[in-house]
Each structure stands twice: as structure tokens, then as C-alpha cells.
Simulated assay, not measured.
Amino acid sequence: MDPLELKSAIREWARDLGFTDLRVCDTDLSDYEAGFLSWLEAGHQGSMSYMDRHGLLRFRPQELVPGTRRVLMVSRDYLPPESTGPSEVLGDPAKGYVSRYALGRDYHKVVRKNLQHLAKRISEATGPFTYRAFCDSAPVYETGLAERSGLGWKGRHSLVLNRSGGSWFFLGALFVDIELPVDEPVTPHCGSCTACIDVCPTGAIVADGVVDARRCISYLTIEADEDIPEELRPAMGNRIYGCDDCQLVCPWNRFARKTGETDFHARHGLDAPDLLELFAWDEETFLSKTEGSAIRRIGWRRWRRNLAVAIGNIPPDHRRAGSAVALLDASLGEAGEQVDRHIRWALTRLRG
């Protein structure tokens, strides 16, 4: 099989495995290095020390996996067919908003497993070859690889956008030592639109394609293990795990497809959960309800910290405010001093 025929076959095999698209690029990401170093110098990484630790390795695939010649970039739609839409949840202060990517099974496992299956299928056609599969699991700059491969372009919110599918898709990368024809990058199509910058609740998008993680709700609720800054808590509203505001407002997402992958469908009613019910979970219940989910990685205490902030944003005159005060009062001392600090803040807010 010549390289062009092999590439065509690989794309078909990828679709058979549930991937929306597959494109091929080389390993040259040098154009992105200066911007990343400036981002680090500004401290935008917050407490994500691994960003400094791995340095420029994320832009050098051939160093991460010696012998890599090409990168097979795949996308996979994840927007679930929820029973309750995002705007309805965000508009109800007694409910909690979970980023749509985290409603189902942990995407790292799903995407990597299918990339492994793809590699096996390729080896059946070519014989043994060197490869390694990634999905947000190592120092790999997937955004740049997606741009170079033509899967999409980096939007102002820093996520990859595609004209036929918006941004509601996961990315995966298969590093290979096979020489394949590369695809051409696509041109950006954000135009003069600044909807994502304008809508960000905490003003985290500080420049075109630049996010200050220290202000980003996704970082604050998932990556940060420190106290959530008090000045940012009111703007977080009822977002308890991640934030999709920049995607929800993006005009390109009117073309987004709902996923047919049942692994990405909402579990345990997390598409529109009751905040007080979630806060009442003990650690054992949390571990049970989040088994196989990306949410589990933040742990029960950080989960409670996030929930305390969201509950503190329930208006004092809301019908659930009294129940919220009773629940929070009874929970002091259960999950450690950090959670207690957030509970006391919430109680002050609820009591007006």
C-alpha cells in the first residue's frame, strides 16, 4: 500500500472507530514556542507546575517519542443529548453546572483506547511500527498539532474550532514513525467576533487566544487545589466543574453535532443536578457516583469546596436558601479547614 492509499485507509478505519475526523501533520511546532514562554513568564499557568516542568518538550514530538515522523490527529464529538440544556441549568441557582465534556465516562480512556485500536489496525496493514497514543495525557501541544493538521483553528478562547463542528470535540494524537502525506492547515474564521471574550464570567481571556488560568473557572474548579479567590467566587455562579460559557456563545457551535457515543452521555443526572443533593454526598458516595468519570480526579474535598461556592451564590431570598444554610451549618468540620473556609463564606452570603 503506497503512503497515499494508506492514509486514506487510516481515515476510514478511524471513522469506523467513532472518530469524527483524522488529519496528518509533521512534528514542527516551533512557531508556538515563543508564545508559550511569554504565557509562562506572565504567570498565566497559575499553580500548574507541570507546565514549567515539561517546558518546550510539548512542542517537540520527536523528542518526546524518538523516531516520530508524523502525527495522526483525531477529533471526536462529545456534546451529549442532555435532558436539560445548559442555559436552563445556568439560569437556575439551585442547580449545579458541570462542563459538558465531563458528564459521561472519562474521555482520556475512551479516546486513548480507540487510538490503540487504530494503531493495531494500521500494524495489520504495514507490519510493526513505533507509535504512542495521547489524549490530554502528556506534554503534547494538541492545539498546535490540530491546527497544523487542518482539524481546525485556535479560536480566541484558545479552543480548536472547526467550521463543520464548532468546538464540542475531543482531540487525540497518535505519534507514528510512518511517513505519510500531510494535510494543509485551515485559515482562522473568527473574523471580528469577540463573543467568547465578552461572555467570560471572570475575564479570563486576556488576549486573542490567551487565557489566564488564574481567572479561568475551569482552572479554579479542576486544577487549583488552593482556596478559590474570594473576588472571583460571585462570578462563578453555579459552575461546579469547569465552564462552557465561551463555547455556548460561539456562533460556530450552531453546527456542533450531538454525540452518538453513549460513553459521553450524562450519568447520575449530572446534566442538571441539585446543588444541595450533591453537597450531601459523603466521600464514599462521591467515589461511587464518579467512578469512571473525569470528575473523580479532583477528589471529594475539592468537589465540596466548589459546591460551597455555588451554594453561596444562591440568592438569600431563594426558596432553597434556608435549607442551604442548615445543610452547610451541619457540614462544618466534615471535610477539612479549606472546605470550612468556603462554607463560612457561603453562609455569610446566604444570611444576607
Rank of each mutant, 00 (worst) to 15 (best):
D340C: 12
E147A: 08
C25S: 14
L270G: 02
V339S: 05
A256Q: 04
W281D: 06
M51C: 04
G150F: 04
E261N: 14
T143R: 15
D31P: 00
D26M: 08
K258A: 10
C190Y: 04
W153I: 11
D329F: 07
L22M: 13
R267L: 06
S192I: 12
L118W: 01
S158A: 15
H342G: 07
N162V: 09
G104N: 04
D21N: 03
F255P: 00
E334T: 09
P273S: 08
D282W: 03
T194W: 03
P201V: 10
E12C: 12
F129K: 12
E226V: 07
H265K: 09
A102L: 06
A173F: 00
S99W: 00
F36S: 07
G237C: 06
E63W: 10
P234S: 11
D340L: 13
L347G: 09
Q247W: 14
R320H: 13
A42D: 11
I10T: 04
V182W: 04
L248P: 02
K7T: 11
V206R: 11
I295K: 00
R58W: 03
R100D: 02
T262F: 05
S149D: 05
E147S: 05
D26Y: 06
L72S: 01
V339W: 03
D28M: 08
G55W: 04
A224I: 00
S99E: 09
A173D: 14
L145G: 01
Y101G: 01
D282S: 05
A266R: 02
H268I: 00
P315W: 09
R105E: 13
T259Q: 02
T143L: 10
L115C: 05
E63Y: 10
E124I: 12
D208E: 14
D28Q: 09
D245T: 01
S331A: 15
R69H: 07
S323C: 01
D329I: 06
T20Q: 13
S83V: 10
S218L: 05
G155D: 04
V71G: 00
K109E: 10
R267G: 00
V325K: 08
L159S: 08
G191T: 11
V199T: 15
A119G: 12
H265G: 08
G18I: 11
P316Q: 09
D263L: 11
A133F: 08
A326H: 01
T84E: 14
F264Y: 15
P234F: 08
L37A: 15
G46Y: 03
P61Y: 08
L145I: 12
Y32S: 03
S123Y: 02
K95Y: 05
L6F: 09
R11S: 13
L270I: 07
R163A: 14
A207F: 10
A125R: 15
I314A: 02
G322D: 14
A235E: 07
R69I: 02
G85I: 13
R349G: 06
C246Q: 01
T130V: 14
S293N: 10
K113D: 14
L37N: 15
C250N: 08
R304G: 02
F36W: 14
L350M: 13
G155Q: 03
G91R: 05
E277H: 08
L64D: 03
S164Y: 12
D26I: 08
K289H: 02
G96T: 11
L276N: 04
G35A: 13
D31G: 03
F129V: 13
E261C: 10
A125K: 14
I217W: 02
V206S: 12
R60I: 05
F59C: 03
E337Q: 13
T27C: 14
